[in-house]
Every structure is written in C-alpha cells, then in structure tokens.
C-alpha cells in the first residue's frame, strides 16, 4: 500500500511539473503584455525599460527557471495589473470559489441521491420518467444560459433573490463566508443552484443506475424475503452498496465544479478565482493566469490522488493492478 501511494505521489508531482512547463510555455510564448501596460505614446527606450523591469528580456528557459525556482517557494510572480503577488490574489479569492462549489455540491447531493433512488425504484412510473427527463434536460442545458434564466425569473420577474455578488460576509476562523448569514445565503442560492445543475443530473443518473442494478441482486431479494420493509432495504442495503461509486464520482467532479465556477462567477459577479481568471485574460495579466492554472491543476492532481488512494484502500484489486503496471 505504501509503495502504491508513493508511486502515485511521484506520478502526481510529475504531472504537476509537466503542466507547469506547458502552461508557462503557452502563456509566455504568445502575446506581449508590455504593450498593454505602457502608454501608447511610449518610445522604444521606455518599452525596453518596462520589458527589462518585468524580466521579459531574458531567454525563455531562464524565465522558466526563475519561475520554477519561485514556484517551489510559493512565489508565482507579481500581477502586472494589481502589482501584488499573483498567488496572494488567487488565495484571497479562493474561499469564495470553494464556498460556491461546496454549496453547489451540497445541493446536488441533497437532491440528486433521493431523486436517483426514487427513479431507480420505479423506473417505469410517471415519477421515474419525469426525473429522468429532467436529468437529460439538465445535461443538455448550457450552464450559462440557465444562469441567465434563473436571474430573469427569480431576480427580475419575481424579485425574490439578488442578481449578483456575495452579499455581506462574516468571518469564520479568519475566512469570509456568505452562507453563515441570511442575506449571504440569499446571494449564494442562485449561483450555487446554477452550478449544481450538471452534477445534480449526473448524480441522479448514477444513483438510478446503481439502484436498479442493486435491486436485481440476491441480497435485496433475501432482505425482502426476510420481511424487511422496502424503505429499510433501500436505506441500509441498497444505499450502502451504491455509495462507493457515488462518493468517487462526487469527489472527482468537485474539480469540474471549480472549473465551471468560472462561468457561474462571471454571470453572478461572484468575486471568486474564476472571475479573476476571466478578468486577467482580458488584460493579459500573465502571472495571475499562470498562478490560477497552477493552483487549479494542483487541486485537480490532489483530488485525483486522493480518490485513487481511497480506491486503493477500499478495493485491493486496484492496488494489485497498480503494482503490476
């Protein structure tokens, strides 16, 4: 087990390293941010001075080396626009994004699993079909458009919920959070529901398929033959057996929640990392783009590693296959 964990860890570090080189080469090889930063009237000497000040006159490999040396120490360069360390900018906005993503996940799990169980229990009933149709729609609807429609319906037409921002936040252990207050909660609801839509559809399908499969198994038949109520069979026998794939997928999908938060944050003006990314792309603020990507890649690699290790711990077959390869 230790060998397996170690091998996966080394693989993850390797992935991180490769991604950093790719991201660096991609972002740094194209486009010159100096022209955006200096005034249009700047002469050649001024441009050269700005280029040197940003370290952009060095050869690419040297820039990369400086970058890697800094990255290991947690320093990813200063934002061209904000003139503060890029990592700090990202980390400042991370709680907002994590709060949004976790709220979305909570909504998806709280609704998706019961609906999936229901649809799996009665696949041919009116309820089951409606739930499945809703899930198909949830897969097909473009997230950003649903976000606009939510704003249109709940904010503009009905006037129930605010259209943008985080609302008032309260500090919990030094981290500003919206969900702790009523007004903040009202601000979270729409963006979280919007972000949750895809995961919700996915969870419904997954739970439904797992339930249908489990219901056909012998242990369910025996439990029923023993005289247990269907409700208890579902809760104790079925749910336990379909839990592992659900937990795995939910964990893996957390990464895509963070990625899709870029869209939701832009629509609802949610001050998270994703909105910062879009703003930075628009002004070619390279260090922030690179820092965002590396932070997100690190989150992804960490999630994948965690899920893999968890899987290895839960299922010995995975461990053995990993050892052979």
């Amino acid at each position: 087990m230790l060998g397996f964990a170690l091998r996966r860890l080394i693989q993850s570090v390797l992935v991180l390293f490769v991604m950093s080189a790719l991201v660096f080469a991609g972002v740094y090889a194209i486009g010159n941010p100096v022209y955006i930063l200096v005034s249009p009237q700047a002469d050649q000497a001024e441009i050269a001075r700005a280029t040197a000040a940003l370290g952009l006159d060095r050869p690419l490999w040297e820039q990369y080396w400086t970058f890697v040396a800094g990255a290991v120490g947690g320093e990813l360069g200063k934002s061209f626009v904000w003139n503060t360390p890029a990592v700090q900018l990202i980390l400042e906005r991370m709680p907002a994004t994590l709060e949004l993503a976790l709220s979305a996940m909570a909504i998806a799990v709280a609704l998706g699993i019961p609906l999936g169980l229901l649809a799996g229990l009665r696949p041919d009933s009116w309820t089951g079909r409606t739930i499945m149709a809703g899930s198909i729609l949830g897969f097909s609807l473009p997230t950003f458009w649903v976000g606009l429609m939510l704003i249109m319906l709940f904010s503009v037409e009905l006037g129930w919920l605010p259209t943008s921002g985080r609302g008032p936040t309260t500090e919990v252990l030094g981290v500003p959070l919206s969900v702790t207050g009523w007004e903040g909660l009202r601000h979270v609801l729409l963006p979280a529901a919007n972000l949750a839509l895809f995961q919700l559809s996915l969870l419904i399908r997954l739970t439904r398929a797992g339930t249908r499969e489990a219901l056909a198994q012998d242990y369910v038949r025996y439990a029923r033959a023993k005289g247990l109520a269907m409700e208890r069979v579902m809760r104790v026998h079925v749910l336990k057996n379909i839990a592992i794939p659900i937990v795995t997928v939910t964990g893996l999908e957390f990464g895509s929640l963070i990625a899709f938060a870029v869209v939701t944050e832009t629509i609802f003006a949610w001050p998270g990392m994703g909105k910062l990314l879009i703003d930075s792309i628009n002004v070619l603020d390279r260090p922030v783009i690179v820092a965002y990507l590396l932070v997100v890649v690190a989150i992804f690699v960490a999630i994948n590693l965690l899920v893999d290790l968890l899987y290895g711990a839960l299922d010995p077959r995975v461990r053995l296959a990993g050892a052979r390869a």
């Binding site: 992935v15 991201v23 991609g26 972002v27 090889a29 990464g255 990625a259 990314l277 792309i281 992804f300």
Partner: peptide, 20 residues
Amino acid sequence: DLQLSFPSILIALVLLAVAG
C-alpha cells in the same frame, strides 16, 4: 488520460487565453 482528467472548459479557456 492526462487530458481527460481535466474538464474541457478549462483546457479550452487556457488555449483561448493564450491564442486570443
């Protein structure tokens, strides 16, 4: 495998951020 472990929107965003 490496590519499929990242959501497509993220990859597309990065590419377009770089390429314009």
